[in-house]
């Protein structure tokens, strides 16, 4: 356990090892570690960002779904309205058509009835004249008994 020149050699050895460490060991190791730390931090930030974006996207999606649902119900509402409208329209049309047809038919009927009545009247008149002529055995001047005949017809 003597103090001898080993103390100097050890001192020199230490300086050399420290120099080696400073030159060849520390910088690459600490650089790699710092880079990895940075990458991890970036990765974490990116994942945070992605999570936030996902959250925003979810909100947006639900918004869009709500909008779509609103639109759909609106369309259904419109369709229903349109449906009622068309139905009413058709009902109105049908009613007016029926009215029109009824009116036309009534007019036809009235016309036919008038016609028939006219025909009947004229037939009756001539029959009456004929009958009267037969009865009287004498020519009745049709012109002369016009007034009488008309009166007769009207009474029928």
């Amino acid at each position: 356990m003597n103090i001898n020149a080993t103390i100097i050699l050890q001192s020199i050895a230490m300086m050399i090892f420290v120099w080696f460490c400073m030159k060849y060991l520390w910088p690459p190791l600490i650089q790699a570690m710092d880079e990895r730390r940075e990458r991890i931090a970036e990765g974490l930030a990116a994942s945070d960002k992605a999570e936030k974006e996902l959250e925003a996207a979810k909100v947006q999606v639900s918004e869009q779904i709500r909008e779509a649902r609103d639109k759909a119900s609106e369309i259904i509402e419109q369709a229903n309205q349109r449906h009622t409208q068309i139905l009413d329209q058709a009902k109105d049309d049908a009613l007016s058509e029926r009215q029109r047809q009824v009116t036309a038919a009534e007019a036809d009927i009235a016309q036919a009835s008038n016609q028939a009545r006219e025909d009947l009247r004229s037939s009756v008149a001539s029959l009456a004249v004929l009958g009267a002529g037969k009865i009287l055995e004498k020519e009745i001047d049709a012109q002369a008994h016009r007034e009488l005949l008309d009166k007769l017809i009207a009474e029928i």
Partner: peptide
């Protein structure tokens, strides 16, 4: 031997271990 002597074993092992560290 006085001061100007070297402990061969001390230097050998410390150098070996220093190189092992390196």
């Amino acid at each position: 031997m006085g001061f100007w002597a070297f402990n061969v074993d001390t230097m050998f092992w410390s150098l070996i271990l220093g190189i092992a560290f390196y």
